[in-house]
Each structure stands twice: as C-alpha cells, then as structure tokens.
C-alpha cells in the first residue's frame, strides 16, 4: 500500500490560517511563494546555504527552504509580510531603510527576519560563537558589532551591504532595549 504523497493542511502564517493541499515535496518556501502568493520570502539557494528564505517559526528564525510545508502544520509562521504593524514599519525595517542596509533587496527580507531572531535570542541570553566566555556566570554578552556579525552570518548578502546591515541591527536593538 503506497502512502499518500500529498496532504490537506492548515498553515498559520502572520496570524492567518491558510488551508491548502500540498505535495509532500513542497517546502514551506515554495508553499509561501507559489501557493500563497507570499513572495517576500526569497529563494536564493534552496539548500540552506544563504538565509534569503529566513522566516520565524514559533518566534525563532528558520530557513524555509529546508522546512517541508507538511511538517510546518501547527507552527506559528511569521514572514516578512507580517513584520510591519500595518503601514508602520517595524523598527528593524525602518533602520534597514534609513541606513541603507540593502542594495538589490533580495536578501533583505531574510536579513530582517534573521535580525528579529537575533535580537530575541540575545534578549534570551543566548551566547554565540563570538562570545568570549559561554559559561552562564560570565553573563549575557553585550550585542557588539562583532556579536551581530557572527549571529547574522547565516544571511549572505552578495551586494555587500553588511556594514550598514550591522549598523541597522545595532540601532534597532538599541531602540528596542530602550523602549523595553
């Protein structure tokens, strides 16, 4: 008995439920782009090697190209289309725009979703490979430019907008910290 190769499922994306039937081979990335017309999430490599397809799943950043859509049922998914508050840009988006943390723009949605994750992960006290001492008694590392660079390294930018991206993430993180 051959198992079914497609499933009907409901995806929770940006607070909205989308019911669809997917080929099991369909990645979350392709479901977003080709089935749900949410094309803000980009396909740069389709192999988890560039970060352009980064979305948030249950609040954590993930690459949607290696996430099967069928396995994403039940998760809360946030894409770039769900980041702004209506017409008001999220502070991370605003900082990318103001500081020119983008050029061609293709890696930008992934960079922004990743930055949201970075700020949350740092707030949760997570260390990174740039952290000198990972032991808990060393405390939470300051979110320096070096920490931001390491934490954002899963998002390639071929135009080379890295310098202003790091500035944008730092500024947004600082603003978030001050407002918290």
């Amino acid at each position: 008995m051959a198992p079914s190769t497609s499933s009907a499922l409901t995806l929770n994306i940006n607070g909205e439920k989308h019911t669809l039937t997917v080929d099991h081979r369909t990645t979350l990335l392709d479901a977003l782009r080709e089935r749900l017309d949410l094309t803000g999430t980009k396909k740069g490599c389709d192999q988890g090697q560039c970060g352009a397809c980064t979305v948030l799943m249950d609040g954590r950043r993930a690459v949607s190209c290696l996430q099967l859509a069928v396995a994403a049922e039940g998760r809360e998914i946030t894409t770039i289309e769900g980041v702004a508050d209506g017409d008001r840009l999220h502070p991370v988006q605003q900082a990318f725009l103001d500081l020119d943390g983008l050029q061609c723009g293709y890696c930008t949605p992934g960079q922004i979703c990743s930055a949201l994750g970075v700020i949350q992960e740092h707030a949760a006290g997570w260390p990174s490979a740039a952290t000198t001492d990972v032991r808990p008694e060393a405390g939470v590392p300051e979110l320096t430019a070096e920490e931001i660079r390491e934490r954002m390294s899963g998002n390639l930018c071929r135009c080379g907008a890295y310098v202003s991206i790091v500035q944008a993430v730092a500024e947004a993180a600082r603003a978030e910290e001050e407002s918290a």
Binding site: T39, V83, Q93, Q94, G105, P109, I112
Partner: peptide
C-alpha cells in the same frame, strides 16, 4: 526601499 524591506 520600503517595498524591499516589507517584501512587497
């Protein structure tokens, strides 16, 4: 830029 940071 706004279109690029919102995914539009």
């Amino acid at each position: 830029g706004r279109d690029k940071v919102t995914g539009a």
